[in-house]
Write a protein that binds this DNA or RNA. Structure first.
Lengths: 126, 126
DNA sequence: TGCAATAGTTTCACAAAATGAACTATGGAG
DNA sequence: CTCCATAGTTCATTTTGTGAAACTATTGCA
């Protein structure tokens, strides 16, 4: 999305969190370092294009790092930067809200409980 | 956006916060009751259609209320529900993040400081 | 020589979301 | 009987995001 030259100093974070898969992706990374294929599986059925798009954007915004490990087969690890870790409280607050206000009118709760992610986020809150 | 039948119990909140203007709109409402035209001006250049779409969705999700005041000219007020107020911590966390990590690579900070909104959000955190 | 496994890239097509302009409804005042 | 102000709605169009399929690159091993 573009324009965003609208009101609000919160813009920077809108740009970061925007996009269909972004929050889910960050949730995964709060759960620890992940490889490309791993993310792809966990976020299935995300397309590789969308996944790279998101990761590149987050790299650009200094939220995640990309580390290439040469060797055969090569592999790549993605992790949160310090700046990214500091998003923890936001995710923790979202998580808490869902716990207590979860059931959106007309929706079922999921069955996915990234407990480690949450504890990591709580750490990040200090 | 659709599908969202993907991983994550955070889904309910993804559905609420999704959409180009939603976060900005909620920020405004954390700043107090607002009328349609008021929101339209503050979120300029949002189109009236988009604004109603968002408001209707948020109503459906029990995040905002719509109150019609007959009379001439009629007017309508939008406000957060209790459930909506409880989103406060999320917004407060976003706000805090922007304060401390604001300058996205390649972006300027805005000049908009919804102070009242923030204090209201802080209240909502208790 | 060619296959396996990793992590992508490229291209094109499609669907959803946002926009813009013009229009509706209400009812009192001039 | 027209105008003002409010708060929308409708419809056509454009923009954007997402997706699917197929392709690239690397290098060791059989």
């Amino acid at each position: 999305m573009m324009d965003r030259s609208c009101p609000g100093a919160i813009e920077p974070i809108l740009e970061i969190l925007d996009g269909k898969w972004t929050l889910l992706l960050l949730f995964e990374l709060f759960n620890g370092t992940k490889r490309f294929g791993e993310l792809r599986r966990k976020l299935h059925p995300i397309s590789p294009k969308t996944l790279t798009d998101r990761l590149r954007l987050l790299e650009e915004k200094d939220i995640v790092t990309r580390t290439l490990y040469p060797g055969v087969p090569l592999h790549v690890e993605y992790d949160l930067t310090e700046r990214g870790q500091r998003l923890g409280p936001i995710f923790a607050a979202m998580w808490a809200w869902v716990q207590e206000n979860g059931d959106c009118p007309g929706k079922e709760a999921g069955d996915y409980t990234p407990e480690v992610a949450v504890s990591r986020m709580k750490d990040a809150m200090n």
